[in-house]
């Protein structure tokens, strides 16, 4: 089963994704639900073009990059454990000086 997700990279984060801000992707997830932690792994393998350390630190995003799910702060939704639903819009905004 595939899940359609809209991913946005803003505030300079788009530089690591071929300068493309908006991505609509479809992710094969099987029977189980997909959480953000798994989504990050998927991004790391399929979307990220360079410099992993500038986007991720350990298994989460680098501090300074804000994550919003449908314009809601992800810390209210359980951060990495949030289970993604069909057509969710997940925004990664870099607030770091160099993006």
């Amino acid at each position: 089963m595939a899940l359609t997700v809209i991913l946005e990279f803003l505030g300079g984060a788009e530089f690591l994704f071929g300068h493309v801000k908006h991505h609509t992707v479809s992710i094969e997830k099987g029977e189980n639900k997909l959480n953000i932690s798994q989504l990050l792994m998927w991004i790391k393998e399929n979307l990220l073009q360079e410099r992993l350390e500038l986007f991720m630190q350990g298994c989460t995003v680098r501090p300074g990059i804000l994550v919003l799910v449908n314009d809601v702060d992800w810390s209210l939704l359980g951060e990495l454990t949030y289970e993604i639903e069909e057509n969710d819009r997940i925004t990664f905004i870099s607030t770091l000086h160099g993006g």
Binding site: G12, F15, L54, D71, G98, G99
Partner: peptide
């Protein structure tokens, strides 16, 4: 950032000397 998202404030990112630096 939240304020900008709610108000749909547009921004333009200019790469600077800190961009893609360790």
């Amino acid at each position: 950032v939240m304020y900008n998202t709610l108000h749909k404030v547009k921004t333009v990112f200019f790469p600077n000397m800190a961009t893609k630096q360790s």
